[in-house]
């Protein structure tokens, strides 16, 4: 699946700062290509997460379109767009993101549970194994460390083998060993055909990148 951002911008109203409009993302046209791991780097507040959320269908652009293959996702109803996200997209949000009343395994299987679908257990176990938290399958999130919670959300994003993976600082709480593990996982997913975009501050992330972008003050530049 190819994901293209066509002339997208995102502006916020910031009355307290004197100027009314603030451009988080300036006009950008770019394609997240399937089969590639795209790394998006940039300073804090440069608009990276905003771009990622627009691509995920979680934040409507002020102008422009996000097109999955030939479909403008923001022309869909909320129900259709949500179903599309569930079926084709794996989002790894910033920070710790678990449902605290569900066990680790239930958290990983959440994309299936939401639409009462069966299956996914084998893939979930495989991912938990790769991420080194298989022994925590039945644990509750409150029993986990920050790094372990992070890996749970990575497993959840990958469990449905999505065509588009959008990761926002996926290695923020991880040590070097686990960072390498996560980038390997994302790289593998990309080489299996997924379009993968990861926003990161991580030094050395470029080494894994098939494509490298940089964002500065809302302007996206394709480096590689």
């Amino acid at each position: 699946m190819s994901v293209t951002a066509e002339n997208i911008t995102k502006e916020y109203i910031r009355e307290s700062k004197g100027t009314n409009r603030f451009a988080a993302v300036r006009e950008t046209t770019v394609t997240i290509e399937s089969g590639k791991l795209t790394v998006l780097k940039g300073r804090s507040g440069s608009g990276k997460s905003t771009f990622l959320n627009m691509a995920a269908g979680l934040s409507r652009p002020t102008s422009g379109r996000i097109v999955y293959d030939d479909r403008d996702i923001y022309s869909l109803s909320d129900r259709e767009l949500s179903r599309l996200r569930n079926e084709y997209t794996g989002v790894i949000p910033q920070g710790q993101s678990a449902i605290f009343s569900l066990s680790v395994m239930e958290n990983v299987l959440l994309p299936f549970t939401l639409y009462r679908q069966d299956g996914g257990e084998q893939k979930a176990r495989e991912l938990l194994e790769k991420l080194g938290i298989a022994h925590l399958e039945n644990a509750m999130p409150r029993e986990l460390s920050g790094g372990e919670l992070r890996r749970v959300s990575i497993a959840r994003a990958l469990v449905k083998k999505p065509a588009l993976i959008l990761a926002d600082e996926p290695t923020a709480d991880l040590d070097d060993e686990n960072t390498e593990l996560v980038f390997d996982l994302l790289k593998t997913a990309a080489h299996e055909g997924a379009a993968v975009l990861t926003v990161t501050h991580e030094n050395g992330a470029e080494d894994y990148a098939d494509a490298l972008w940089r964002m500065d003050s809302g302007t996206l530049e394709v480096i590689k």
Partner: peptide
């Protein structure tokens, strides 16, 4: 709120 946002990211509609 964060949990509901996670549900949304995983594909839950506003209605869900």
């Amino acid at each position: 709120k964060k949990e509901f946002a996670v549900l949304r990211a995983a594909g839950a509609s506003r209605g869900k």
